[in-house]
């Protein structure tokens, strides 16, 4: 590629030119910070995760359980009716196997993002990751269970669940 570029008109820039400030180069490090209010729905959802529990809200009109817990039902456009504790078990709705990292480099142990339909939610799921499983063994419809951080290390975040692993049902 580089051989051909040499034949083209113009002056190519190298990283060195930029470092040595041979070209106009400006740098700006914006200090962007946001502090999002979690509000009623997400606030309780995170507080319950810290306690090692998954909580949703039920809309009695469409009969769905909303996850993460919400204050209102977006389909029926009305406030939800009640808080509902859910099991930390579910079924894989869909998944992917990520073989490359942020810089598109190959990784040896792939990450497995999955949408997990939580038992009792009526088909609503949590976006999370699978582990303790051979990527080749992962299937849509697979039963899984949450693996939690130890209580003292939970901080009220989605990462309080470390990952989900295959559930061996008896």
């Amino acid at each position: 590629m580089s051989e051909k570029i040499k034949e083209l008109p113009g002056t190519p820039l190298s990283e060195k030119d930029i470092i040595e400030k041979k070209v106009l180069f400006t740098e700006w490090h914006p200090e962007f910070m946001w502090a999002w209010d979690t509000g009623i729905g997400y606030g309780r959802y995170f507080a319950e995760l810290k306690k090692g529990r998954i909580i949703g809200t039920r809309c009695n009109k469409c009969r769905r359980v909303l996850l993460p817990a919400r204050y209102f039902c977006e389909w029926c456009f009305r406030p939800v009716d009640e808080w509902v504790y859910l099991e930390d078990t579910g079924t894989v709705n869909t998944f992917s196997i990520a073989y490359t990292d942020w810089l598109a480099r190959r990784i040896k142990e792939p990450r497995i993002p999955a949408l997990i339909e939580i038992d009792g939610s009526g088909g609503v799921g949590i976006m999370h990751v699978l582990d303790e499983v051979d990527p080749k063994e992962v299937k849509i419809g697979m039963r899984v269970k949450a693996v939690w951080e130890p209580e003292e290390e939970r901080e009220g975040a989605i990462t309080d669940i470390k990952y989900w692993k295959p559930l061996k049902e008896v």
Binding site: W36, D37, G39, Y42, R70, Y71, F72, F77
Partner: peptide, 19 residues
């Protein structure tokens, strides 16, 4: 400040009233 509601809940309230 409105720490009691998320932006979603705030808009839901305004929208519900408008409708």
């Amino acid at each position: 400040i409105t720490p009691d509601v998320s932006f979603r809940e705030m808009v839901f309230e305004a929208a519900s009233k408008a409708y």
